[in-house]
């Protein structure tokens, strides 16, 4: 069954149309990479799927697990298993990382009819995942992302993802700005989550990420539409030739 089906999606921010008839189908177990030049709509797509309210969907539909995703509030999408790893994770002074994540996890568990975890049970789970991501446990006691380095913020996103165990993970340029060690660790975290009942959409600017997280499909987004889809080899071609040849194609569509 299709996990996610995007049909002819149009979305704008203010008066500017950014997505202009985007189509994409994602099945459980798949990893899709979405690449494309700056301003092509990659991040917009990720935010529209997560429910960011300042983007306005003007037409098209998004079916997620058989339901109309666009009607759901952001928190309902999260509870139904959608997770967005932010390109720029938000700092929230005064809110403890540990408290925040446990509250989120328990909201999701409640929604799924599971028992809530108490502080101790949560800590056990959190420690395990932090170890995998080579994170310092002290980050749990700090405010959400406050004073974290760029790499720590990105790792914190993947840490949250691994604790919340989404069905559909959207990674919005998680690789941007990471050095090679951090990239390796983050990729390890993402790969550990690959599962038959889970899909991952990687939005990225760089082919380098795909050496670590090997996608099943690569799509090129240009001017608000997917103009080319293929397998991993498409990413290599983009690396060598850039996007210009595709934009020409897009103009002829």
């Amino acid at each position: 069954m299709n996990l996610l089906e995007i049909k002819n999606l149009h979305a704008k921010i203010g008066n500017e149309e950014i997505l202009k008839g985007l189509n994409l189908t994602v099945r459980a177990g798949e990893v899709h990479a979405i690449m494309g030049p700056n301003g092509s709509g990659k991040s917009t797509l990720a935010h529209v799927l997560a429910g960011r309210e300042n983007y306005q969907v003007t037409s098209g539909e998004v079916i997620y697990q058989g339901k109309n995703l666009l009607e759901m509030a952001p928190e309902m999408r999260a509870r139904e298993g959608i997770f967005l790893a932010f390109q720029y994770p938000v700092e929230i002074p005064g809110v403890g990382n540990s408290y925040f994540l446990r509250t989120a996890l328990n909201e999701i568990r409640k929604h799924r009819g599971l028992e809530e975890l108490d502080a101790l049970e949560f800590l056990g789970l959190a420690r395990q995942q932090m170890k995998l991501l080579e994170m310092d446990e002290s980050l749990l006691n700090r405010a959400v992302n406050e004073g974290f380095s760029g790499g720590e913020k990105k790792r914190n996103e993947i840490f949250q993802m691994s604790v919340l165990e989404p069905r559909l993970a959207l990674l919005d340029e998680t690789d941007s700005g990471l050095d090679i060690d951090a990239l390796r660790i983050v990729s390890k975290g993402v790969n550990a989550l690959r599962a038959p009942d889970r899909a991952i959409i990687l939005v990225t600017h760089y082919q380098r990420l795909l050496d670590y997280i090997v996608p099943d499909f690569v799509h090129v987004l240009a001017d608000g539409q997917i103009v080319k889809s293929g397998d991993k080899s498409l990413a290599f071609k983009l690396e060598e030739q850039g996007y210009a040849w595709l934009e020409k194609d897009a103009a002829n569509l």
């Binding site: 509030a73 999260a78 997770f83 932010f86 994540l101 989120a104 909201e107 919340l164």
Partner: peptide, 26 residues
């Protein structure tokens, strides 16, 4: 911040309450 909390599953009133609490916390 509000969207970030909601995108993790916190309901809107809970997210607002938590951010308000955080504002006072220092």
């Amino acid at each position: 911040q509000l969207f970030y909390l909601r995108s993790r599953g916190l309901g809107e009133p809970e997210a607002k309450g938590l951010l308000t609490y955080a504002f006072a916390s220092d």
